[in-house]
């Protein structure tokens, strides 16, 4: 099963503010995209539209599953998950209970052992029975990653996923993102990480797609120059 997206002339307005203006691109299976741009460039808005979370004000967006067009958001949501700085997990449930809930919601029928393996992958195996509320920020982010990986999505949408993670957590996440079959789209301020992990870059500026670049013909220095063109600064 593969998922690809094609969107053209996508615009989103909030009142008189324009968040996105006539953005067109394509996403093929296996693409790893970093969306870059300064605050308010429209990165999250674009991500939300791709996640079927909000509708564009104008323009077309079409998803296709295995080459067949699919416009049923319910069906699409089976194949894409969203990871942001918000954990989206319940504070009063344990790590395991949270995962079991997501498991039921997506009807993946994973056994507890499989859920345990998933916790192992994000480095949280020892904390399965811990209440989510009592986990530290970094642990919460790791659990959130487990939540996003659980349904085995075809496309992972990442909105600043590294926030709150320690070095080990970042390394683990990097490892996961660079050794995977699925495509992902990453919004981040870490220019370095954005370059290392992705094979494509979308640079947004004031709601417009300024550049769409492939990594194969782009050195890090050239990449930085493009980013500076959109008046960004190197993140932490």
């Amino acid at each position: 099963m593969s998922l690809s997206i094609r969107f053209s002339e996508l615009s989103k307005q909030f009142g008189e503010t324009i968040a996105l203006w006539r953005v067109s691109e394509q996403l093929h299976p296996g693409d790893r995209v970093s969306i870059l741009g300064h605050n308010g460039a429209g990165k999250s808005t674009l991500l939300h539209i791709l996640a079927t979370l909000s509708r564009p004000s104008s323009g077309d967006i079409s998803f296709s599953l295995d080459g067949e067009t699919c416009d049923n958001p319910k069906k699409l949501r089976n194949h894409l998950t969203f990871l942001s700085h918000e954990p989206m997990l319940y504070p009063d449930l344990t790590a395991m209970e949270n995962l079991r809930f997501i498991n039921r919601l997506y009807q993946r029928n994973l056994s507890d052992a499989q859920l345990g393996e998933l916790l192992e992958r994000v480095g949280m195996a020892d904390f399965a029975e811990r209440l989510f509320r009592t986990c530290s920020r970094g642990m919460q982010q790791r659990l959130s990653l487990a939540r996003a990986l659980l349904p085995q999505p075809k496309l992972l949408l990442l909105d600043e996923p590294f926030s709150g993670l320690d070095r080990g957590g970042v390394e683990r996440m990097k490892h996961l993102f660079s050794n995977t079959e699925m495509s992902w789209i990453l919004v981040t301020h870490h220019l370095r990480l954005g370059y290392e992990l992705a094979n494509r870059f979308w640079i947004l500026h004031r709601g417009r797609m300024l550049h769409s670049l492939h990594k194969r013909d782009l050195s890090y220095e050239a990449y930085l120059r493009f980013c500076e063109g959109s008046s960004m600064e190197e993140g932490a």
Binding site: L53, K74, F82, L89, Y90, L105
Partner: peptide, 13 residues
């Protein structure tokens, strides 16, 4: 509170 509602919206239900 934790953005959980968004997780429900994004679930295929």
């Amino acid at each position: 509170a934790n953005g959980c509602y968004r997780a429900l919206i994004l679930a295929p239900v």
